[in-house]
Design a protein around this nucleic acid. Structure first.
Lengths: 211, 211
DNA sequence: GTCTATAAAGCGATAGAC
DNA sequence: GTCTATCGCTTTATAGAC
């Protein structure tokens, strides 16, 4: 007769299993050191388990890394909320843009970006998984918004030019500011996510706004 | 009496020193494997020298990496040529944009991008050096072009909004297409550097072109 | 300067007790 | 499931001969 649930009744953190502790430690270690430079010893020490315990839950270092990346991408790239104000296209674009920039510039998103970029040639599935849950979802959300605005006559934008328009829009939002942040270069003085979002919305409206 | 110049008279490649061979091998190995996963043995084997010879020329693995990055950045980021056609602002922007995109999408530039992004938290100087010889120079060139076009009345753009305008422009050119390429995701069907450059030039002209 | 040989340490992964 | 202990291999870096 096995216990129906593992209940660690006396430790300070009874609800978190060892598997969760390992994943949390892996996140810290991998995002700080990169995949190759990270060691399973470091993960084990941070998770307060032995190395053998890690291998009881994850078949290899690579498997642990991939699980961790998948878990982090799910929470780091929460779906973009559609804006509240729909009557003003410029305002709707601005709201979405600002939210998009703040997602991109979050420290955890930056760390994910760095590690995945660095390792994508050796781990192609990781790069594709990242792209699928990050950029792809953001693009879908933006497509929904822009289609809606166009259908209501608030944007002069037909379906055929939608993919290009969205690439240009997201590109403006993930420009120099994001690159500096990823590289550790101090941000350009006077540049803020709000200014960037406003500039991108203005540029987009100048091109696709109704006259 | 020491020989005035080291002349290896009988090998197939007399002009290239061992130091150059080591740097070339380091480039291949580091850009393929990333910094941490690359080994000095692999560099030595590819350069056809012993590991001890490497350490006679470079004090450590890290020093070799930094030298290699500096050397590659200098050649990978050749200065953007200013466009020939100056009378048509849209055409000038397009030419510069297309050149910029092709620089970004070159396989070697992509590999540099990946490795430097992945390692920038541990090697901040590398990230800053990359930014200084890559994006900074491109921004300077674009500033020169845009200032010139504005001075001649071909763009409605004053100095104050120049930094933002340039960030938006370069962002459009380094958007989804570049991200896909870095991550190894196949390019979006129908998207080409030319279409992207044209879209960015059109968007920019809609916002900053003279009416 | 360049080599062979090796030191010294760290790595991923596993065996076996409990 | 979890631990301790260890295997077998690779790593960066150096010593010493030439």
């Amino acid at each position: 007769m096995s216990r129906p649930k593992k209940i660690d009744c006396c430790t300070g953190q009874p609800a978190t299993s060892k598997q969760e502790a390992i994943l949390a430690a892996a996140q810290t270690v991998f995002l700080e050191s990169g995949y190759a430079a990270a060691s399973m010893d470091a993960v084990a020490a941070l998770a307060n388990v032995s190395k053998a315990t890690i291998y009881a839950h994850f078949s290899s270092k690579r498997a642990l890394f991939e699980e961790m990346i998948g878990a982090r991408c799910s929470v780091a790239f929460a779906p973009l909320p559609l804006p509240e104000c729909y009557s003003d296209a410029r305002q709707a674009l601005y709201e979405m843009a600002e939210h998009f920039v703040s997602l991109l510039m979050a420290p955890e998103a930056l760390a994910l970006h760095r590690v995945i970029m660095g390792e994508s040639p050796r781990l192609p599935e990781v790069g594709e998984a990242f792209y699928s849950v990050g950029p792809v979802r953001a693009i879908q959300r933006l497509t929904a918004l822009l289609s809606d605005l166009a259908r209501r006559g608030l944007l002069a934008l037909d379906e055929a030019e939608m993919p290009l328009a969205i690439d240009l829009f997201t590109g403006m939002l993930k420009g120099d500011m994001h690159l500096r942040a990823v590289l550790g270069v101090p941000p350009k003085p006077g540049m803020t996510p709000q200014r960037l979002a406003a500039g991108a919305a203005d540029m987009f409206m100048a091109r696709y706004g109704v006259k």
